[in-house]
Design a protein around this nucleic acid. Structure first.
Lengths: 344, 344
DNA sequence: GCAAAAAATGAAAACGTTTTCATAAATAAG
DNA sequence: CTTATTTATGAAAACGTTTTCATTTTTTGC
């Protein structure tokens, strides 16, 4: 390993010396300040390029108290929906000159609290959060909001409104579409595996689903709905429950795709033909739903649109400079669409 | 929206005033400098906590010319293997007080070049790269390495060695395992869908695969190997090609899981029973391989281990402070394992 | 051609931390 | 009890940028 050292950086002062101008003028030129002659700007830009000048973000950040960094807390980035949202957010923020620090809570409340603290301490200028499924109490976010940190929730958001901006999918309509679809396909008895109602996602999906059934004059009995952690194992057990009854369902709406896949596997094991004897609808349009056989109908949530909207809102908040809302605001709702496939 | 402003931050100077000490001592206490009395340290820490002090990273970064930020360029974060690696890297770096900026090249060479420039300009202290499949010329990385920026490649890396550190899976052995496994299962004629040989991944997987066949005294004819972009569409076409021949294969090794899935779907369409008439092995242990029916045998690459090793190497490089290696170094190889499933 | 206004530039302070150098206090050696 | 040594603290400069205020230069209106 050689001892070659990093080349010495050129600063604004070097440009100033080279052009016999003051650092102040250079700074203004680089920031496209109106009070600097067009020719001067041109000279400065040229010289900057020639010297390979890179603005020192630490210096400018220190001066105007900006980190140009946004924090993001997400259950896990490997979930397809989140990966897409994050990608979009990342790209959009980059265009605006912002960096994104991505943290994963692994759906653990305690870790989410800790990460909130850490990101706050890291001086992110805003926080984007898809919270854990156990997050009912939002006081750890209230704390940083009180300190003037803008927070935006997406996907998983506080149930009863919040001062923070929220960008969510239209889960009510998604649930409705799923229900309506199964009814249209001739299902007479539809079961629903939902998550815990502490989450806005599952509460809303259930509510839309229920409405679809009501409109069709169908009952939704207590034994037709289960609330479980939406893992493959739990979904399998839930299916066992539904099929342990006198009257078994001919359609099932699962509140996420992991459990829809598990439901399909359950049907395979039991030799229940899908879609002939059992129709299945999932939620999120996970890529796996399209490669399994039969491919599973599901609800598309348009993650890119969610991401873009989050960034739009974020930029607006950042412009508002620490003026935090006092009152709760209504969530911003992104439309969803049902994707009909062979499972129904 | 109220006009509530951010609360004014406490600085090292406020602590100094509160304790009637100098800012210098406070700084030293906070950095656990040996030349400060234990009692003083304790007082400072307490007062810092009491005042809710947060170190200003821009100020300290400016002073000692550190950003505590690492850049990462990856084809896309939604690929399972990469998502896992990134997660691990992110967590490990966080523990070391480093931030991670994640950028996606979408497997586009031009974008990769641009991102390299941008991250360099953003003053990241190091760069972690899984390059695009078209990256043959590494001069855009050489440029920043020459500037003293440590670069670590993982997974996809320069073919012929490089000054930069490389952490790669044992693709040769992975290919060998896949070939051996198919032979052990009784395959007599095994086809291989590979990517372009410009990538270390596919070159090595092919080489290991070929070795397994050789050891078994089997030929690998030219019409048994195709080099294609490993998308579902191309894989499908490749399978059509293999099955358009007089002698059709009874086993196929696909160099990634996307194409293995496509191969399975091809077999379904043609009514070729898997694994009876055709055995399939993929690569990467994508979660989809385990839910498709039959589940597909594949090669596990242990993304967490790759990620951890990357961070270990990275920290070592950062300690070395811009002393960049003059000579090429051998890649660090992470072992792989074959996962045997019903497709073979 | 001159005053007034506008445009362009410069000087210097400030952001919050770290660190060098100097100095003071405490301890050890004689 | 000195003197030398170690330990602990402080003063001040430095990091590179931005911005306020002051000043100079240019333009405009008459």
């Amino acid at each position: 390993m050689s001892k070659r050292k990093k080349t010495q950086e050129n600063t604004i002062i070097h440009i100033a010396e080279a052009l016999k101008l003051s650092p102040a003028t250079i700074s203004r030129a680089l920031n496209d300040h109106p009070y600097v002659k067009a020719q001067t700007k041109k000279d400065v830009l040229e010289m900057a390029a020639q010297l390979g000048y890179r603005r020192n973000l630490m210096a400018s950040g220190l001066r105007n108290n900006k980190t140009k960094t946004v924090g993001l807390i997400v259950p896990r980035i490997s979930m397809f929906f989140h990966a897409e949202v994050i990608t979009t957010i990342q790209n959009a923020l980059h265009q605006q000159g912002y960096k994104l620090i991505i943290c994963q809570s692994s759906d653990l409340l305690e870790l989410e609290k800790e990460l909130t603290e850490i990101l706050y301490a890291s001086r992110v200028e805003a926080l984007i959060v898809a919270c854990t499924l156990q997050t009912i109490d939002f006081s750890h976010f209230d704390k940083v909001i009180d300190q003037g940190l803008p927070v935006i929730f997406y996907d998983r958001a506080p149930l009863n409104g919040h001062r923070a901006t929220m960008v969510v999918g239209d889960d009510v309509h998604g649930g409705y579409l799923a229900g309506k679809h199964l009814i249209d396909r001739g299902c007479k008895r539809i079961a629903h595996l939902s998550g815990h109602l502490s989450s806005n996602l599952y509460r809303n999906r259930l509510s839309g689903f229920r409405q679809a059934l009501m409109e069709a004059g169908m009952e939704l009995g207590d034994d037709q709905v289960l609330h479980r952690e939406l893992s493959a194992e739990e979904a399998h057990k839930a299916m066992e429950f539904f099929f342990s009854k006198e009257v078994v369902p001919d359609g099932v709406f699962l509140a996420n795709d992991v459990s829809a896949i598990a439901a399909l596997q359950f049907a395979r094991e039991r030799g229940i033909p899908v879609p002939e004897k059992l129709k299945i609808v999932g939620y999120s349009n996970d890529p796996r739903t399209s490669i399994i056989s039969p491919p599973i109908s599901t609800v598309e949530q348009f993650p890119q649109q969610v991401g873009l909207r989050v960034v739009t809102e974020l930029m607006a908040l950042l412009k508002a400079e620490g003026n935090i809302p006092e009152t709760d605001t209504a969530p911003i709702v992104i439309p969803v669409e049902l994707i009909s496939r062979a499972s129904s």
